[in-house]
Write a protein that binds this DNA or RNA. Sequence first.
RNA 1: GCGAUCGUAGCUCAGUUGGUUAGAGCGCCGGUUUGUGGUACCGGAGGUCGCGGGUUCAAACCCCGUCGAUCGCCCCA
Length: 417
Amino acid sequence: MSKVKTPAKTPQAIRGTQDIFGPDAEAFAFVVETFERVRKLYRFRRVEMPVFEKTEVFARSLGETTDVVSKEMYSFDDRGGESLTLRPEFTAGIARAFLTNGWKQHAPLKVATHGPLFRYERPQKGRYRQFHQLDAEVIGAGEPQADVELLAMADQLLHELSIADGVTLQLNTLGDGTSREAWRAALVEHFASVRDDLSEDSQERLEKNPLRILDSKDRRDQAHVASAPKIDDFLSGEAQDFFGAVTSGLDAAGVVWTRNDALVRGLDYYRHTAFEFVTDRLGAQGTVLGGGRYDGLMESLGGPATPAVGWAAGIERLAMLCEGRGAESLEIAIAAESNDRNADAAALTNLFRREGFCVELFASGSPRKRYDKARKAEPAIMISLDMRDGEATHGLSVLNEGYARAKKAQEIFDNRK
RNA sequence: GCGAUCGUAGCUCAGUUGGUUAGAGCGCCGGUUUGUGGUACCGGAGGUCGCGGGUUCAAACCCCGUCGAUCGCCCCA
């Protein structure tokens, strides 16, 4: 009919997802590649995990009342009516795999992975609904040396990313199960006695997650936080020894840290060591890597008591600190300044690539502008092929004096048939 | 989930107290210069002003809603 076709609207990307491209994508890849290299130095084995799990995997391990479980999970029923959830974190799924696959035979097991995670949150810079993390876990190791090795790896990663000087390691201990419960009870008592002075948020936290009051940013809470009972007064002898072994191990490894006795973890399964690498360069999303010991987690999934430590790091946040890193510079630009030389230029491009050079071919668009386009790509070496008065001409010029492989490139160019 | 700011070309942004056909720079495409040269000049394509309503003779501009981004809170890596 004469009815004008209704142009199909292009669907929008989902809120909180990102299409990463250009320098951001290069920085992202740089973070992942650096992690892969460092993780091998520490002999952490690579694992690949499903992106979704039965909902109970997360509900049981993270704690039903945590915000992550109660309002931030992407859960849905599959066609069989089973409740599944897009993973909001790595640890629970890895713990499940450890139990269901009998990985106990490999204990102590050091594993590393990375990939997308999903949380239904209000997006912000450095906070997305689909975001990406690096993850490292040591499962079946109850010794403080495991904590030290894991932290040393995190520290080395940040150094190799060249962002360590803007980031500080904050360290705390939550004690063993009984110390933690005693401390928690004392905190509840302390804050309940001044309940009406607390911020609304903290009054709510008093019910749901009293430890979290300690890192409240609200001024009204500060004084009461300062006078709150300290974990150190509730630590058992073993818990003290454990923390002491971790800190002296870090000192011996040359890992710089500061004690923050108000540092707690949001998830219920943590015990003993808790830590965060924090920067002030990312606004409210300052935690760049965080983790701790989760000795209670395996039991919550119905497995045997199994000690474990782990950390996760936000790739986007790390990548933002590595801005401009990771882009490979162009070694050779080849311009075909006449269409008659397109085939020669393509052959030459192939030749150099097979010799392991990073090459870009400029043989499209206006022949007169190809040279300029090639120059703008900022190659170390510029090669131009042209046709003058019926004669094939060619030229190679080294634009970057410091370029190490110039001689080899020249040889290949001179010896081409 | 709460509060605030913002949304104009591929990108960065102008656009007066509402007033003809919405602009610039960069980028892209083409042409001319130059002819071992990242030059200069000319031209071109590209916008339902995020989307939907409302007020008005008239809306990019004012009002409401909605979607999205950013910054805090919350949460967390």
